[in-house]
């Protein structure tokens, strides 16, 4: 039992330290010795959450969040994980449709947000980049998400974000979802202009807000 605990701690710690090679080595070792893939993924999640915490404490920065995302992805691609891992519906905290809005081809902010949302128990439907408003509407009809996340690196994204909100209103879907917009330049005034429920200047802030959305939805 002691060995398992030690190995678990080591896995969490090497994710936290962003030591990619060591994480993969330890993950393979753990799987070989019979660790449940779901248990392993929880350990990786815990490590990524600690990276997120270091980011909030301003000890880690964006490059570190990206690295944590890459490690997480790599573990997901291990054969044993791919074969056995399927998230049970019961574990999903909430569903979110994300996309970089029309006119913007940047995906890094959205990718980081998506990665952090997944480790925090959200199911994420990613529509990609340069997404027109009707694609968001269609996706909301199809997937019935709790939240729509609109991303944009360029300031021009503001108009496109507003277009998405307007399109959801026209389709009478606006009140069925919470809308969060993300971009480093977004202010309270711009959020209001767009007609979103909330905004975040970075990905980890966005995850917190989405968790709040779900809490208030469930708890009333």
């Amino acid at each position: 039992m002691k060995n398992v605990t030690t190995l678990s701690d080591q896995i969490i710690k090497s994710v936290e330290e962003l030591d990619e090679e060591r994480v993969i080595k330890l993950a393979n070792k753990a799987l070989k010795s019979g660790m449940d893939p779901l248990f392993l993924l929880n350990l990786i999640n815990e490590g990524v959450k600690r990276v997120g915490k270091l980011y909030e404490e301003r000890k880690y920065f964006i490059a570190d969040l990206i690295m944590a995302g890459l490690i997480f992805k790599e573990v997901l691609e291990l054969e044993e994980i791919k074969a056995q891992f399927q998230r049970k519906d019961g574990e999903i905290k909430g569903k979110v449709v994300v996309g970089t809005v029309k006119g913007d081809l940047h995906d890094i902010g959205k990718e980081i947000f998506k990665g952090l949302m997944e480790v925090n128990g959200f199911e994420v439907i990613d529509l990609g980049v340069d997404v027109p408003e009707d694609a968001f509407v269609k996706s909301v009809i199809k997937h019935k998400p709790d939240i729509v996340g609109l991303s944009g690196v360029l300031t021009t994204a503001v108009e496109s974000m507003k277009d998405v909100v307007e399109a959801l209103k026209r389709a009478r879907l606006r009140d069925s979802v919470k809308i969060i917009v993300g971009g480093s330049y977004i202010t309270e005034e711009l959020c209001e202009y767009i007609g979103a429920d909330s905004f975040a200047n970075d990905a980890s802030e966005g995850v917190k807000i989405c968790s709040e959305f779900i809490k208030s939805e469930c708890g009333g």
Binding site: K102, G103, L105, D107, I108, V129, D130, T156, S160
Partner: peptide
């Protein structure tokens, strides 16, 4: 370097 749907040329990753 690609032109997005609105005509704005930008640098994708």
């Amino acid at each position: 370097f690609k032109m997005a749907s609105n005509g704005y040329i930008q640098h994708a990753e």
